[in-house]
Write a protein that binds this DNA or RNA. Structure first.
Lengths: 244, 244
DNA sequence: ATTATCTATAGATCTATAGATAATGC
DNA sequence: ATTATCTATAGATCTATAGATAATGC
């Protein structure tokens, strides 16, 4: 079985087999690649990593999914590890930006926490790959991942800060703050474990999960609706902040 | 660098190098193995899989962790895939057994749901490895995993059943039952995403997470304490059921 | 000169099988 | 005869580099 070669007319072994329509550039005709091979590689890698795992995905599989030969991938990424690191950073960045915008807004901690959880979940649920669980691999512990882990810590600290403020103002109540932090962070990320996330609207999922976070913490559970309304307004405000 | 050979005196290349103290059996002196190599292999594999991923863990790494040479592992497991399948089944089985016991007990659905979530979390939090996220790999989609997936479906259906009963009796309230099911299942499994689970007592984690599940669903949030008390009694009853 | 691709390949794995060896239990 | 281990190895990968080739842009 001969491999499915992208055409590269000049080097073709049989000159008779040459394609008469000479292409301007020796570019493979991969479906997903189009104008930006680098981006296409990221997309393909995200999908393959999340389905088959990091070590279980070969650079060959990634390259060929975008219509390139295996070594050509290394023109865009120095190593396979670089690919994973960049994907993890891309996944978390929108949420850390949301956090930064929320921090400077003037609002109740409960609303800020709701907004953060909502945005976090929305970001994950809107992606059609599921990279979240890959961050726990030992593969993601080398120096190349320092930047990612710094972002991740920032995010955790953001959750912790809003929780702490809510406890101080007595809007929240819990038995043990340290555990509550992990419960909240865990619930927010739990969409990563859904097998049927595509069956629902990302917006709907985000509301439900953010509701769950707040119901866990609110001293007065009846305040949920008001908090949610305030939070969704905050999200819009944070988006505006971003545009400037 | 010569490999760290377990002694196997007779086949030793240099007879002069022979150990004078002949061992009764040609058994390697691996630390973890002791009396039950099969069990030791399972433990080692669970730890390595959860740290480095399935494809990222070699059969050599597993075998040598228990003091065996790589091919000796295949005396106990026909394939590497068999190892993963058995680990996943072992992880989920105690929880499906709890479910079966809860189903026949006479109690409020809220208490049964609490008990199920509590036991589920306790089971995961008590294990010192984290296999939960591995089930989502494509590796775990072959026929060998049918039994595991049947158990997993059983468990999801158990959660669904208790939720449905609670809604019928108006103990629970939610906007959309299908989403609520996934939220609940996700929260229960979310301990798999904790990076600092060892910092807390498994019992404490389980209470907090089961609380979060019930706070999400209860129509009257004030009923939580009573539900928790009833649930912990149920767990004891279910354990008794099991002993018979 | 730079960018994007390819073929070829070095060198390092990795899983599983074959077949030898030794101890144990009948 | 069965069980548990080993060494050796086949055959299939896998990542990354080297070096050729062609188009583009100065």
């Amino acid at each position: 079985m001969t491999p499915d070669k992208p055409e590269r007319s000049v080097r073709s072994t049989s000159p008779a087999a040459r394609n008469t329509t000479r292409l301007g550039r020796p570019r493979a005709s991969g479906a997903a690649k189009d104008e930006n091979p680098r981006q296409a590689i990221l997309v393909a890698a995200a999908e393959l990593f999340s389905r088959t795992g990091y070590a279980g995905t070969s650079t060959r599989a990634i390259a060929e999914q975008v219509g390139l030969r295996q070594p050509s991938m290394f023109h865009y990424f120095r190593t396979k590890e670089d690919l994973l690191a960049e994907l993890l950073e891309n996944l978390i960045t929108p949420t850390t930006e949301l956090l930064a915008n929320l921090e400077v807004l003037d609002a109740a901690p409960a609303a800020k926490l709701y907004a953060l959880a909502f945005g976090d979940v929305l970001n994950m649920a809107s992606s059609d790959t599921n990279m979240t669980t890959l961050q726990f691999l030992n593969n993601a512990r080398t120096e190349r991942f320092d930047r990612f882990w710094a972002l991740r810590t920032q995010l955790f600290d953001g959750y912790a800060q809003f929780i702490s403020q809510g406890l101080k103002s007595a809007a929240f109540a819990c038995r043990d703050e340290a555990i509550a932090r992990s419960v909240v962070f865990g619930i927010a990320d739990s969409v990563a474990l859904w097998e049927d996330a595509d069956s629902f609207e990302p917006q709907e999922i985000s509301v439900e999960v953010a509701d769950a976070v707040l119901l866990f913490l609110l001293a007065d559970k009846g305040a949920l609706e008001a908090v949610r309304t305030e939070a969704l307004a905050l999200i819009r405000a944070a988006r505006k902040e971003e545009d400037e």
